[in-house]
Nucleic acid binder design. Structure first.
Lengths: 199, 199
DNA sequence: GGATCGATGTATCGGCACGATACATCCGGT
DNA sequence: ACCGGATGTATCGTGCCGATACATCGATCC
């Protein structure tokens, strides 16, 4: 998930870790920030896989030869996406299977980079997500209906709130889907259809 | 977090892993189930710490001596809470600091076991949680206000939805807090004050 | 002028939870 | 007689987290 997000951000311009973290927090919505304990290992993995490349300016050359041994003295490390990385991102961005929407975090990242995603793929991801969340809602309603007299007030309240959240998410997704369909319908009427420019 | 939850469930009666998983899923609200990959290690940790004890019936004695080597042949393992475990649970249940409400999962577990929690502790946890979520909401509103013209429709929508969720959670918590305060006020008027049974 | 504090910046460590997987038992339906 | 699904225990690799350490730089304070 993190790797997807990093590739997406580097799509725009090279960055170093600190910036990536902030951008990611901004894009993912303030909540759900990312920790360095996952960020730096992820960068290493990506670099090892050849999907990103680091440009390490290493200002060490400025130091006199009697610099304090080899302790510390880090330079900023700027990461840029490679051609392979772009390929990989294109693959990830066009996924329509459960791996795109089953996990909340992954879905969030997909949504965050929807401007890089084809319209039909967008629709399928949104619909997939809605089905997933609907199933969650139904399971929750079921379990609530069956067990509600055995639960105390607090547990009940917790589940009621959870159910409400899930329900709202379904409605939110439905709005997005409808709006997406409207766009598609409108696009079909205009003289600029997606891929058939002969008229 | 898991350890807290396990101790809480075993408070009622001994169980084996499978049951714990189901109970936990039921209590935590269907979403947020727990995986065996975390459950069994957690049980081991708890046992190593002496907080729970396993009663392993090992029905191996019924087997003839020529049983198929030592492959497989597991018995049900029933776990029960120990005296130390009860102490530990009592400690956990009376926590009022950030560790009780900063993390969503931990807060959920605390709430799930509120019937074991003193009224004043309940109130402090709920208020703490509300402050945490309010801060999240404010940060999110801030970031949204500052960056909204630089975000595309989808990222914006994602954050709007997130903000709405957080906002609803604050209101939900406020309801719980109010109701909790009502209870406290009512309790103060009745002839059954909490710990002063002399009149 | 120097001290100090917060933002910027890179990096590691232990711990915890996850999904996938394997394996075994038992029971009900076909 | 068989077979699938619920029950049940357990491990493995992976990924993310919080805490922590360390270093630089500008601004503000005394």
């Amino acid at each position: 998930m993190l790797e997807f997000a990093i590739l997406g951000l580097l799509q725009q311009s090279p960055m170093h870790g600190y910036e990536l973290r902030k951008e990611l927090a901004a894009v993912l919505g303030g909540l759900r920030s990312i920790s360095y304990g996952s960020l730096y290992p992820a960068l290493k993995r990506l670099q090892a896989a050849g999907l990103i490349a680091s440009d390490d300016p290493t200002p060490r050359s400025l130091l006199p030869a009697d610099a304090p041994a080899l302790t510390g003295r880090r330079g900023k490390v700027v990461y840029a996406i490679t051609a392979e990385g772009k390929e990989r991102f294109a693959d990830l961005v066009s996924q329509t299977g459960p791996e795109a929407y089953d996990d909340e975090g992954r879905f969030g990242v997909h949504l965050a980079f929807f401007r890089h995603t084809a319209a039909d793929v967008r629709l399928r991801i949104l619909e997939g997500r809605r089905r997933t969340v609907e199933r969650q809602r139904d399971r929750l309603m079921d379990s609530l209906r069956r067990t509600q007299e055995k639960l105390d007030r607090y547990t009940l309240e917790l589940q009621r709130h959870g159910l409400d959240s899930v329900d709202r998410e379904v409605r939110w997704l439905t709005e997005l889907i409808d709006s997406e369909r409207d766009d598609a319908a409108r696009a079909e009427q205009t003289p600029t259809p997606p891929n058939d420019g002969t008229t």
